[in-house]
Amino acid sequence: MNSGPATWRLTAALAVFAWTVHAEDNLLSTIKGLHTKNFTSETYFEPPNEQQVKTRLNCAEASPLPGGLLDLSGVTIELFDAKGKLESVVETPRCTFAPLEGWARSPSHVEIRSGDRRSHHEGDGFWLRQTNALLSISISNNVHTVIQKPAGSADASL
């Protein structure tokens, strides 16, 4: 993913966000039925990079909601490559997450930036859903994308 477009990298981070919580039984069991603060959940690459962190989900607070939903606040997701390089960061102050159905949504602000800080998406209100391992993301209001290219760059990512 190093050479892929910023959008792919950023959305991959969101995909991992959905997958991370979905896959983390420990996280779910921790949150289930109680209010949790300041937790971090990490996933790792498959062998031979099993020692490398793939994603790190930091959440200031998490609370269960009816219907198996989770109310997450202070959410930050970091996505790394297999060499430990930070690829993308997703931040939102609050969202509702449906781990079993594979969606997250919120009227809150969301920011998605690449690890090298050369690209950045933000907006108000988002809806992330995963169907058959394919991800769709919508930002519903006040979208702003910034793409910065250093001098001499031939990278053509939007």
Binding site: A15, H121, G123, L134, S136, N141, T145
Partner: peptide, 27 residues
């Protein structure tokens, strides 16, 4: 960057801003 120079000159640093009401991405 790339288009401006036709590959002849070194492209200057660039910032591109895109604003819209909404945004959708689909894998």
């Amino acid at each position: 960057a790339q288009a401006q120079t036709n590959g002849v000159e070194k492209a200057p640093a660039q910032r591109l801003d895109i604003k819209s009401d909404s945004w959708d991405f689909s894998q």
